[in-house]
């Protein structure tokens, strides 16, 4: 593996997103949402203004869990299939570069753009809020940003994987939307449904582990378990064994969600050399 080849591809992908203002747009969206949630999140209760970091993070988590997977899937779904469909893939592959290097370069460049927008968008809000936050709160906010980046990277990895498998862009975009619906909307409902239908007979014990099968849930657990006040707000805390709620363990699971789809993508893309 040659790092310079990966860097060349990653650099192009990253700068493409800077130049077409994708990074700026996404960062602004994050800033706008985070600021409104921090200041107006309690408007329904009749008060306006920053309340506490716990409530702010809890609200941000609910938002980010929808938004970041969507943004990551849209960013990555045509990474490979797009090049193939436009007809530029052959030229790229005729260069002194392996398919795995190309795939990693694509992923790292896009992940860099996504991470940069996330950190810039939420970081700006963090700076604005910093006057009202103590060190502990800042630490939690930093944890939230880091887990948001990981969440984005996990869904980007899934997006790149389906971009390798899909036959064309249209199918890839369909798959991306389906994937978003499944992980963000359907997965939890499905688990709950099984739990209710079997009256807790089946799945009760396994439920916490099942949650690890969804990167969005891992993200949620990572954030709410780090916040004392919030934990009690969620019923989840009662079913989730504290032993599993170790940040490093959850972080490891998240890393798995980044590495495994990417590894499957690399395997399939290398195999593609045999078909094409």
């Amino acid at each position: 593996m040659e790092f310079s080849q990966i860097a060349a591809i990653a650099g192009k992908e990253f700068w493409d997103r800077i130049r077409n203002r994708w990074v700026l747009a996404v960062a602004l969206v994050f800033t706008a949402f985070a600021l409104s949630i921090a200041y107006f999140g309690a408007a329904q209760q009749g008060s306006v203004g920053f309340r506490s970091i716990e409530v702010t993070i809890a609200s941000l988590v609910s938002l980010v869990i929808y938004l970041i997977p969507l943004i990551a899937l849209v960013l990555g779904f045509d990474a490979i299939v797009g090049e193939r469909e436009r007809g530029s893939l052959d030229l790229l592959l005729s260069m002194p570069i392996t398919r795995v290097e190309l795939l990693l370069g694509k992923y790292l460049g896009l992940a860099g753009a996504l991470a940069f927008s996330t950190v810039a968008g939420f970081g700006l809000v963090g700076v604005v809020l910093s006057a009202q936050l103590d060190l502990n709160a800042l630490f939690h906010y930093f944890g939230f940003m880091l887990s948001s980046v990981l969440l984005g990277c996990a869904f980007l990895s899934l997006a790149v994987m389906l971009s390798v498998f899909a036959a064309d862009r249209t199918r890839a975009s369909g798959l991306a939307i389906a994937m978003w619906f499944f992980f963000v909307l359907i997965f939890d409902l499905l688990l709950l449904g099984v739990l209710v239908v079997t009256a807790g007979q089946w799945g009760g014990e396994a439920l916490p582990y099942m949650l690890l099968l969804n990167p969005a849930d891992v993200f949620r657990i990572l954030n709410i378990f780090s916040l004392e006040d919030v934990r009690t707000l969620y019923g989840l805390a009662t079913v989730f064994p504290p032993a599993l709620a170790q940040p490093w363990l959850l972080g490891l699971v998240m890393a798995g969600w980044i590495v495994v789809p990417l590894a499957i993508a690399a395997w399939r893309f290398r195999l593609g050399a045999g078909r094409a």
């Binding site: 310079s4 060349a8 260069m95 002194p96 570069i97």
Partner: peptide, 8 residues
């Protein structure tokens, strides 16, 4: 420039 980088 992009392709030159890839070709080293």
């Amino acid at each position: 420039q992009f392709f030159a980088k890839l070709k080293g």
